[in-house]
Amino acid sequence: MKNDEKSKILDDEKNIVLDHDYDAIQELDHPLPSWWVMTFYGGIFFAIIYSVYFFFMGGFSIEKDFQEKMTKIKELRSEFASEGDFNLAFYQELLTDQVIAQGEEIYNINCIACHLENGKGGDIGPNLADNFWKNGDGSAESIYEIVYNGRLEAGMPPWADILQPEELYAVTAYVRSLRGVESEGAKGPEGQEYPVPADNE
C-alpha cells in the first residue's frame, strides 16, 4: 500500500520516459497511434466535407426530405383511402364469426375503456347493447359512421386514421352484434329508442 513508489518502467520504454514526476507519476512519450491519428483527422475531414455539402451544395435537408416522403405517403393513402361511406354489401360479405371475434379484440383494446365490457356503457361512453341511441339509429351503417368520424363533442375520437378499413368494419360488426346482450350494472338508456335493424343477417 505504498503511495510514493515511482512508476514501473518496462524495458522497451526506457527511451521514452520523460523527466516528469508528479506525486511519483511518470509520463512516457509514446507516439500517437497511427489508427487514432487517422480517426482524428477522419472525423475533422468528415465534419468539413459534410458542412460544405450541407451549407454550400444544397445537401440533405430534413425539411425537403420530409416533403418528398410525405408526398409519396399521401399518394399511397389516396389510393387506398376508404371513402368513409358505408358499403353494406361489403360489410355483409365480411360478416363471419371470425370477423366479429376480431372486432371484439379491437373493441377490447380501443373502446372498452369508455363503453366497458360488452358495450354496457360507462361514465363517458353510452350503452351500446340496448335499443336506445344518442347518435344514429344503431344500424351497422350509423355505427360505422360514428366510429369513422367520432363525436368529438361527446369525447369520442375519430378512428378512421387509427384503424385499418377492415378493422373499422370488424369493430362495427362486433358492436352491432352486442345488441340485446344484458350485463350487470349496464348504463341506463340515453337518446331515442330504435328497433333492431336487419342488417346483421
Binding site: E5, S7, K8, I9, E13, V17, L18, H20, I25, Q26, E27, L28, D29, H30, P31, L32, W36
Partner: peptide, 10 residues
C-alpha cells in the same frame, strides 16, 4: 504503478 502512456496524446 505505471507511467502515463503518452504525454503528447494527452
Amino acid at each position: 504503478n505505471r507511467p502515463v502512456y503518452s504525454y503528447r496524446l494527452s
